[in-house]
């Protein structure tokens, strides 16, 4: 499943970049994040608790930030699993300065399996949009 979109932050690009690379801020803004541990530079273990109907459950996963090109782009590679199934995906995050704003765009491919696919697939596009929206809004607050 393709996931793509953009979000406009009213902040300079360097600041957006730093915020997106801060464990503390990520943990705060990730919806349902109970714990985020940086196991080695750029690699994280994450524990999530999600309460949205079809994808409700506890998940644990790993993600890593690859190919960092500060402050312009990086690649996010992640996978997670919980009783409702598994998620894995890759996304390229790019940032660019436009006037006083920073435009963040993401372009990714996500695969879901198990119950998530059997029950949730129909809703997963909507749910991921909602969660990404929540995440950016929280990051926006931080900024």
């Amino acid at each position: 499943m393709k996931i793509e979109g953009t979000y406009t932050f009213k902040a300079p690009q360097q600041k957006v970049w730093e915020t997106f690379n801060s464990v503390e801020h990520l943990q705060e803004a990730l919806p349902g994040c109970e714990e985020l541990i940086e196991t080695e530079p750029g690699k994280f273990d994450v524990f999530l608790k999600i309460g949205i109907s079809a994808v409700k459950g506890k998940y644990k996963g790993k993600f890593e930030i690859a190919d960092p090109n500060p402050p312009n782009s990086y690649k996010l590679i992640g996978q997670g699993k919980g009783l409702p199934g598994y998620v894995k995906g890759e996304a390229v995050i790019s940032m660019s300065q436009e006037g006083e704003d920073t435009i963040l765009s993401y372009d990714g491919d996500v695969q879901v399996g198990g119950l998530l696919a059997g029950i949730g697939q129909r809703m997963i596009g909507g749910i991921s949009k909602m969660m990404i929206g929540q995440f950016f809004k929280s990051m926006d607050k931080v900024l």
Binding site: Q111, V112, A117, G118, I119, Q121, R122
Partner: peptide
Amino acid sequence: YDEHGQCLTASFAD
């Protein structure tokens, strides 16, 4: 099924 073999119809909603 999707191309990865995930079943897309595991409830009467689908």
